[in-house]
Deep mutational scan, measured.
Amino acid sequence: SFNTVDEWLEAIKMGQYKESFANAGFTSFDVVSQMMMEDILRVGVTLAGHQKKILNSIQVMRAQMN
């Protein structure tokens, strides 16, 4: 498990989005775990492969939080 959203993004090789997530207010796992595709688009993730990777990881995160 990760301590910060930045660490999580690095771990899934999506570190290039750290600033975008932070600027959009997605700075805690409570918020990130609620993200939908529209949120991912809003933070500027436009590549389908990256969207899928982030969404898949969020689903895993949700499962671990319950």
Rank of each mutant, 00 (worst) to 15 (best):
M35I: 05
Q64W: 06
E38I: 11
L47A: 11
V43N: 01
Q16H: 06
T46R: 10
V43G: 05
A22N: 08
T27F: 06
F2K: 06
E7H: 07
K13P: 01
L9V: 02
M37F: 11
M36V: 15
G15V: 05
Q51I: 15
S20Y: 07
G44K: 03
S33I: 14
H50R: 02
N66M: 05
F21H: 00
A22V: 08
K52S: 11
G15A: 09
N66T: 10
V60K: 14
L41G: 04
A22I: 09
T46L: 12
V32S: 01
F26P: 01
M36S: 14
V5E: 00
E19C: 07
D39A: 03
S28I: 04
V32L: 06
S28A: 07
Q51G: 05
G49S: 15
V5T: 04
G44V: 02
I58R: 00
G25F: 03
V5L: 04
A11W: 11
A22W: 09
T46N: 10
S1M: 14
E7I: 06
F26S: 02
G44W: 03
K13T: 10
I12Q: 05
A48L: 12
I58N: 01
Q51M: 10
Y17E: 00
Q34F: 06
M65E: 07
T4M: 05
S28G: 07
N56G: 10
F21I: 02
E7K: 07
S28E: 07
Q64H: 15
G25R: 04
V43C: 13
A24N: 14
N56W: 12
N23W: 06
L47M: 11
Y17N: 00
V5Q: 00
M37W: 10
D6C: 06
I12G: 03
V43H: 01
V45K: 02
V5R: 01
D39S: 04
N56K: 12
N66Q: 13
S57A: 15
M35D: 00
A11K: 09
V32M: 03
T27S: 08
M36I: 13
L55P: 00
F2I: 10
G44N: 04
R62P: 04
M35E: 01
A11E: 12
Q16N: 08
K13Y: 12
A24M: 08
K53N: 08
N66F: 02
S28Q: 06
M61T: 04
I58Q: 01
Y17F: 04
V5S: 02
A11T: 10
K53Y: 13
F26H: 03
L41D: 05
Q59W: 08
R62G: 11
I58W: 02
V45M: 02
W8H: 01
V60G: 10
S57G: 10
L41H: 08
V45D: 01
Q64K: 10
M37K: 08
F26D: 00
N56E: 15
M65Y: 04
Q59V: 10
S20W: 06
F2M: 07
N3S: 12
E19A: 12
A22E: 07
N23V: 12
E7Q: 09
F29T: 04
E19I: 09
F2D: 05
K18R: 11
G49E: 15
L41Y: 08
A22F: 13
N23L: 13
V31G: 08
K52H: 11
I54D: 00
K18W: 08
Q16P: 05
Q51V: 14
Q51C: 07
E10D: 14
L41N: 06
V31C: 09
Q59A: 13
I58A: 03
A48S: 11
D6V: 07
W8R: 00
V5N: 00
Q34T: 11
L41Q: 10
Q64G: 10
L47Y: 09
K18E: 03
M37G: 05
R42F: 09
G25N: 05
I54F: 05
V60Q: 15
E10V: 08
I40N: 00
M65H: 07
V32C: 04
V31E: 11
V5H: 01
Q34N: 12
E38H: 09
F26M: 07
A22Q: 12
A63I: 10
S57P: 01
T46H: 11
W8F: 04
M35R: 00
N56P: 01
M14P: 01
D6F: 10
N3K: 13
S28Y: 04
H50L: 03
M37P: 11
V60I: 15
E10T: 08
A48N: 09
D30M: 10
V60L: 14
T46M: 11
N66Y: 02
T46Q: 11
D6Y: 08
S1H: 14
E7P: 02
S20T: 09
I40R: 00
I12M: 10
T27R: 09
K53G: 05
G25M: 04
